[in-house]
Structures are given as C-alpha cells and as structure tokens.
Amino acid sequence: MLEIKNLHARSDETEILRGIDLQVNAGEIHAIMGPNGSGKSTLAHVIAGREDYEVTQGEIHYNGKDLLDMEIEVRAAEGIFLAYQYPVEISGVSNKYFLRTAMNCVRKHHGESPIKRTEFIALLKQNLDRLGMDKSMMDRSVNEDFSGGEKKRNEILQMAMLQPKLAVLDETDSGLDIDALKIVANGVNALRSPERATIVVTHYQRLLDYIVPDKVHVLAGGKIVRSGDKSLALELEDKGYGFLQELTAT
C-alpha cells in the first residue's frame, strides 16, 4: 500500500529525515516510535503533504501512484488520513457541517453524489456512540474550546466517518488519560480490516497495549534504526531511548 524509499526531507535549512525506508501493506498496523526530535511527526506530515517540508531525495508510492506528485486534498480523497497531534480550530464552522463537507469532498473526488442527510445522521450517531461523544459536540465550532481529550476524540471521529485506507496517527495518545486512550484505541481497532492500514506514531509504549502493531520501527536522527515486532516496543519501554545513541552513532 505504502512504499517509502530513501526519503530525505528538510524544513528550511535543517534536514530532518535522512533516508527512510518503510513498507506498509494493507491489513497491517505499524508503530513508529522514537525520542523527541527524531523526525516521527515530520514523517507523518510528509505523507500528508504539508508544504513546510521539502522532500529533497527519495520517493513514496501509494497504491502504485507517486504520492509526492499529489496535492494534499487529493491524497486525502485517495484515502490518506492524518490524525493531528494539535488539531486546528475553525471558528464559526460547526463540527457537523465540517464533517459532512469533508465527506462530500471525498465522495465528489470518486464521482459519487453527496451523502444523504439521513444516512449521514445515522452514521454519525453510530460513531458518536462508539466513541462516547455527546452529540452536542457536533453543533460546536470545529475544535474550538475543546479540551485536549475532546480534540483527540474528534480526530478519531473524523477518521471513523471518512473511513480512510491509510490512517496516520500523530501522537494521538499524548495527553490522554487511560479511559480516553482505550476509546481512541477502539476507534483504530474498529477500522482494522484487510483493505486498510494504520501507522501509529507514538512516544510511549502504553498505546500499543491497546493497539497491537504488526511491526514496530524506531526512528532516531531521521532514520529507522531498528524494526521488529511488538516486543521491540516493550524492550524500548524497558531500556528507554538512551541505548539508541549507540545505534545512531554507528
């Protein structure tokens, strides 16, 4: 589904990603871990297409297409979803209207007609219930005056409604209490299917207690320094990121 080869990217003059290779297949969940400043978030945003980052080398293929050639909204319409670490506020735009507009933009891209009102409401209700969200949140402005936990849940709600093929979660677990963490994890697990893939970017192992990854990658200094199965996450938890310094030094 996603194939990243020798990816280098920089912001202004600073090179952040220095040769990433990663392959994510349909049906898989990958966890990307690593210390602060290792390039985890940058990788997530480069996949989404943020224009602040310049890709200087390497390539990304998504379902056989050149991803780097695609506009941000085309990537989104083709099924790439990024759950933001810091979701953005849009004043005066109701959450419900925003969700419906986003869904319709994606549908339009695929030549489908806008979603019917009743169908939308039913789908929304189902997902709100699953995520333990109050429906009054739908009439509030997008992320405005939301608590940290509400914002993260709202990201997962959007993901559940948009049903992406490749979901990238950028530190969605940060700042969440254990109950909220479980809900977020349920949201991700509910989307698990042979046609979809998820990349979970996280600093801590604890999210992986609830979202069990197929593969774990450790990012340091803009490179993947180790890959393994879920036991790698536990090892990291045990040893801390300190031991990576030896790895990156070599």
């Binding site: 941000i72 989104a76 933001y84 953005v88 005066g92 735009v93 507009t101 994606v106």
Partner: peptide
C-alpha cells in the same frame, strides 16, 4: 487551518470559504 481542511479533502478555495464563512457566521 488551510492545511488541516485540505487534509480532510477540501480544496484551498473551499477551505478559505469555509474559514471566512465561519468568521461571518
């Protein structure tokens, strides 16, 4: 804001319209 809305599938134009309309609501 524009980046966020585009990541959800809106074109830049739709994104700016949405932000401006929200501002005037």
């Amino acid at each position: 804001q524009i980046y966020y809305l585009r990541q959800r599938g809106l074109s830049t134009e739709d994104a700016v319209n949405m932000i401006v309309n929200g501002f005037c609501k």
